[in-house]
Nucleic acid binder design. Structure first.
Length: 529
RNA sequence: GGUCCGUUCAUCUAAGGGUUAGGAUACAAGAUUUUCAUUCUUGUCAUAGGGGUUCGAAUCCCCUACGGACUACCA
């Protein structure tokens, strides 16, 4: 085996936002490159001018940057791309539209070597042929059986071909697929695959109408020119692998032909088929890393980032869709993934996407974050709510609630009472923990609390427990009612911790508001009973 | 229709011929707790079907079924 530098590329088409399947493909390429000390390149395959969507390219780069999937060549995370080759970008440009001039000669090279030919059929002619075949319940295939009957350079006199190339703006270069040949291919994930060319068609490689190549030509030419060593892409490309093999052969590039790995598809969580944008809307989970507003239709799609996912969690769950390290470890940092990743452990079968597990990953990542980091994130929301709070106060709160949350956006519901006195009280909890004697009990508790100095977690715990014991009270009855006064609901961390953090003055204020007003509980209690 | 790829609990998956088929999510029950959550324990649940090969098959081969991708002058 010759030692060849690993160079992989992620080559999206800017026809819309990148969905999670695309992100996973990018991730696997990235991990593979870094695992082998190679290059990870982003190349934009924008050879279909008709499907160009403004903002899509920028979206792709931003989405990958959010995931920390950073290319070391090609489109950078800043979104800029070299127009000409330089030291950092030796294979520039990286947008196929900017490489336009380059492809024609490769197409013509194939015509000259007899591997391709010019075809002059109009789209109308082809449509008519397709319809005709359809009525006969057949499938129209543009191949050896029909190409000699159509308008091609294969059957025209050289002079006419030259003339048509001059006048006609709609000719194309088609690959001359061998009539019947076994093509033996190798896939790093699927092993050996053999296909007979008899079932394949003469694919268009280059179009005169816009002067651009189709995917197949551009892809092979650029992978060759960019010295790509491994092509890691979605399974939907497997059927065109024979064509790609044949193209490498026709160009005489088989010695540097990259190795191929076709990744399994991401499927719908329910039912059948591959995951699509609509599934997210239908089942209530994002299929895109970042939210996206379609500039043409105005349609809005939510994103993982906006839904509150951490990029680490998002990457973690994607990595485990179709790959595993063979151990029972499920939580990984990006660096750990880099060290463990290998194509040999990529699964062959498609994976149904499971939104439930996505939440679990986020929960795990969230609780591994430091209180300070969470506080910084939570402060953003607090500011929006017009709440000013000290960082260390918020950090302590984060410490109390982080095991109860899945997202930072859950924090407010879990901790609003640290910032505002409750204005309503959970009905069920009142019914369960409040009775006609509770009010008197709370008055006594308030008196006990008032005498505690300093008002620390330990002191409160000691004093309250002592008071409970001396008066032979029921711990649950006292604590749950106390919680109701302070929190307004039956939830949250230990009451002594809450009390210490909220400080004596605020605790007494909340208790007094209940004791003096009496209304909330009394009404609820007696009306509902 | 044709070609190719695939098929282990509901879901993600482990098990490179010999295990009571393992883990995780979800779900359920119990324990712990001043509440909620956490945590812990436990439970339900799978080799698509049929043939071979073999002492022995989830694993190798064949057939069937099912699923998926592709079948554009899209990528």
């Amino acid at each position: 085996m010759t030692v060849r530098k690993v160079r992989v590329r992620f080559a999206p088409s800017p026809t819309g936002p990148l969905h999670i399947g695309g992100v996973r493909t990018a991730l696997f390429n990235y991990l593979f490159a870094r695992r082998h000390g190679g290059d990870f390149i982003i190349r934009i395959e924008d050879t279909d001018s008709g499907r160009f969507v403004p903002g899509a390219e920028e979206y792709i780069v931003r989405a990958l940057a959010w995931c920390n999937i950073l290319p070391n060549e090609g489109l950078t995370s800043e979104g800029s791309v070299a127009e000409k080759p330089d030291a950092k970008n030796p294979h520039a440009p990286y947008r196929q539209s900017q490489r336009k001039a380059l492809y024609r000669k490769y197409a013509e090279q194939l015509v000259e070597s007899g591997h391709a030919y010019y075809a002059f059929d109009t789209p109308e002619t082809l449509d008519a042929l397709r319809k005709e075949a359809e009525t006969k319940k057949e499938t129209f295939i543009y191949n050896h059986a029909v190409r000699t009957r159509l308008q091609t350079s294969l059957v025209m006199p050289a002079g006419e071909v030259a003339a048509r190339l001059q006048q006609d703006r709609h000719w194309v270069v088609r690959f001359k697929m061998p009539e019947s040949r076994e093509v033996n291919m190798h896939d790093l994930i699927r092993g050996d695959v053999t296909v007979n060319t008899a079932t394949l068609d003469d694919k268009v490689l280059w179009k005169a109408a816009d002067g651009l190549p189709t995917y197949h030509l551009a892809n092979i030419v650029d992978d060759h020119l960019m010295d790509i060593s491994h092509v890691i892409r979605g399974e939907e490309w497997l059927p065109s692998l024979p064509l790609h093999y044949l193209l490498y052969e026709a160009f005489g590039w088989t010695d540097t032909q990259p190795e191929f790995a076709h990744l399994p598809l991401l499927l719908k969580p329910d039912g059948k088929g591959k995951l699509s944008k609509r599934d997210g809307d239908r089942l209530g989970f994002p299929v895109f890393p970042l939210a996206w507003k379609d500039p043409l239709s105005g349609d809005f799609s939510r994103g993982y980032r906006e839904d509150g996912y951490f990029p680490e969690a998002f990457i973690n769950l994607l990595a485990l869709l179709g790959w595993n390290p063979g151990t029972e470890q499920e939580l990984f940092s990006l660096e750990e993934l880099v060290n463990l990743f290998g194509l040999d452990r990529v699964i062959k079968s498609g994976a149904k996407f499971n939104p439930d597990k996505a939440k679990w990953f986020n929960q795990q990542v969230l609780r591994m974050k430091s209180n300070e980091e969470l506080a910084r994130l939570y402060q953003e929301e607090l500011r929006e709510r017009g709440i000013v709070a000290a960082d260390d106060y918020v950090a302590q709160i984060c410490g109390f609630i982080k095991e109860r949350a899945t997202f930072v956006k859950d924090f407010w519901d879990l901790s609003a009472y640290f910032f505002e006195a409750p204005t309503s009280y959970d009905e069920k909890a009142v019914r369960k923990y409040w009775n006609s004697e509770t009010l008197d009990l709370m008055e006594l508790l308030a008196a006990t609390l008032k005498s505690i100095e300093p008002f620390t977690n330990e002191n409160i715990e000691f004093a309250v427990n002592k008071w409970i014991k001396e008066n032979n009270l029921n711990v649950g009855a006292v604590m749950n009612a106390f919680r109701l006064c302070i929190v307004g609901a039956s939830k949250g961390p230990g009451m002594f911790e809450i009390a210490a953090l909220l400080k004596k003055e605020e605790i007494l204020r909340r208790m007094n508001s209940v004791i003096l007003k009496k209304n909330h509980y009394i009404c609820l209690l007696f009306n509902k009973k």
